[in-house]
Design a protein around this nucleic acid. Sequence first.
RNA 1: CGGGGUGUAGUAUAUCGGUAGUACGUCUGCUUUGGGAGCAGAUAGGCCGAGUUCGAUUCUCGGCACCCCGACCA
Length: 428
Amino acid sequence: MRQRTLFTKTRKEAPSDEVAKNAKLLIRAGFVDKLQAGVYSYLPLGLRVLKKIEQIIREEMNAVCGQEILMPSLHPKENWQTTGRWDTMDDLYKVSDTSGRENALGATHEEIVVPLVKQFVSSYRDLPFSVYQFQNKFRMELRAKSGILRGREFIMKDMYSFHKDETDLKNFYDKMKKSYERVFERFGIGEKTYLTFAGGGSFSKYSHEFQTVTPAGEDTIYICDICHIAINKEIIEDQNHTCPLCGNKNLRTETAVEVGNIFELKTKYSAPFDLSYKDEEGKDQPVIMGCYGIGLGRVFGTVVEAYGDDKGLVWPREIAPFAVHLVEILSANIRVREETEKFYNELIGQGIDVLWDDRDLRAGEKFADSDLIGIPFRVVVSEKTLTEGKFEIKARATGEVSMVDRDELIKFIKSVKLKVNTDACPTL
RNA sequence: CGGGGUGUAGUAUAUCGGUAGUACGUCUGCUUUGGGAGCAGAUAGGCCGAGUUCGAUUCUCGGCACCCCGACCA
């Protein structure tokens, strides 16, 4: 993409009322725009990141045979009354239309997915399966805060699994733990993200959260460095400050952001909607459920919090808006523009995502913008390139600079392999 | 929802009960061109409503919005 065509612009200063690092940097760099507290637009650069996050999740959910669907945001009141949550969920947005009919804006989708699958599930032969979606969720947070980390409207991947018994749920649940580990690994936050034991409510001993360590976190977790897992504050007292896996008492305290969670729902939602199946003996049995969420905006903001520095954003390669930031430094020698364009077209032809800063600006401004936007590699084309035949390549994360010739550079850029999931679902 | 704070050009800020200033941005021209450049000119502003006052952006009250702490929550 040619940067001069980008309708957004960077800013030197963040809005004075923003305190959160993710909000400051993302607004300055033109990745997002705040419409109101906790409600954000994703602009071209930000949307690219969001879509990469989404695609990684999609690949991994497909790999565990999840079937993608899209459910509505406008939910009939009756569905929420069936589970009782119309009255008990304090942060549910309720809207009524001119006919007086009441609806909920989807805060989560158990109330929709259960009646949906009920139409198709009647036999043990129909189980197990799982469905997932990427959908905006609405929750009336009394206090939206921390930039895009806690919004009133946010995008979530929510998956729901349906099983004939708890053993089958347990197997799938364990598979999802591994799936999630791969997802966070691919986001570039694997090392900072811990499987965290959390309260399970009335249906199981634990649920699990995925918590990413960053100072911006709202949660306190206790990390066992032996098992690379953590315990949430809410159950640490019950656990007597010991790791539930290995008994280690030396837990490390950190603040973290909850980027995902997995729950065994069991019959919590299948029961009120009477979602059941006939077993081998023809007897009705309740369907056993699990649910699995990842907050995309949370991941987005958490990555900014975890890696952003005083100069701007720093994107892990897997979710960067572009692979390469091509920066031309203009001089009296007009051929720089021509050379850059040729090189740009060559990279594009190789299937490489390039943002080309073709604006008529001075070098300092372009470098500052490049640091702010945070694309993993910056390649500079200047008069020097023409006279010496060398390109300068700089890694945003490390600041490491090297001078390489054209062929080396292309070879290097192409060698930066992104992780892919080769475990395709056999039935999809 | 309880407590606290803040609302001035596109952005960041200053001043003031009587003509609202600066920087960046944007526009014009010239010069510059490897870390947010220089000169000259231009552009653009008091959240909303009521009250006090000869006069309110400033003081008072109400509303709204945003931010922070807490509670709640992904």
